[in-house]
Simulated scan of single mutants.
Amino acid sequence: MPVVLLPHPPNGNIYIRELGRAYAALGWTPIYGAENLLEGNLRPDLLHLHWPEEFYRWRGEGSLTARAEHFLMRLHALRETGVRMIWTVHNLAPHDVADASVDAQVYRAVIDSVDAIHHHCNCSIQALADRYAIPAALPRFVRPHGHYFSYPNDVGREAARCELGIPLDARVFLQFGQIRGYKGLGLLLKAFDGLELPRKFLLVAGLYNPPTGPGAWRERARLAWRKRTDKRLLVHGRAIDSDRIQVYMNAADCVVLSHTAGLNSGVAVLGMSFGRSVIGPRLGCIGETLGEENNFTYPAGDVAALKDAMLAAAQSPNLPARGESNRRICESWQWTAIAAAALDAAELSG
Rank of each mutant, 00 (worst) to 15 (best):
L207I: 03
S277F: 08
A346I: 14
V235R: 04
P320E: 05
R222P: 00
F274V: 11
R59K: 07
W333N: 08
H95L: 09
T88A: 11
A224Q: 03
V303Q: 13
R180C: 11
R171K: 13
P144Y: 14
P144D: 11
D103H: 01
P2M: 10
V3M: 06
A104V: 02
T260A: 09
A93S: 13
D243E: 14
A342M: 03
V204Q: 10
E347F: 05
G275Y: 07
A160Q: 09
C254H: 05
D112C: 08
S242D: 02
D96L: 14
A109C: 06
S273N: 02
Q126T: 12
I14A: 05
I166K: 06
R17Q: 15
G82Y: 12
A205K: 02
P152F: 06
A129T: 03
C285Y: 13
A77D: 14
D230P: 07
L306W: 14
S258Y: 08
R199L: 12
V114H: 07
P317C: 13
E219H: 06
R157K: 07
L202V: 09
D241Q: 05
M73S: 09
L75K: 05
R276T: 10
L343Q: 15
T81D: 13
R108P: 00
G184M: 06
A133E: 03
V114G: 04
T212C: 09
Y208T: 01
M310G: 03
D103C: 03
N36F: 08
P94G: 10
E331D: 14
G215Q: 13
Y132C: 00
L263W: 10
P10Y: 11
D99L: 02
L185I: 09
N153Y: 07
I179G: 00
A137K: 10
M85R: 12
G237K: 00
E292W: 00
F141I: 07
G60S: 01
V235D: 12
D243S: 15
A133R: 08
L92G: 04
V97C: 10
D45I: 12
H50W: 04
A268V: 07
M73Y: 03
L188D: 08
E347R: 15
R244L: 01
Y208C: 03
L197C: 08
C123V: 12
G156D: 10
V110Y: 01
L49I: 11
L38W: 03
Y151E: 00
Q315W: 11
R161T: 05
G271D: 02
A261Y: 07
V247L: 15
G287T: 07
D154R: 11
R232T: 15
Q175L: 15
G275D: 04
V278E: 05
D344R: 15
I279P: 01
H259S: 13
A93K: 04
I166C: 10
R244F: 01
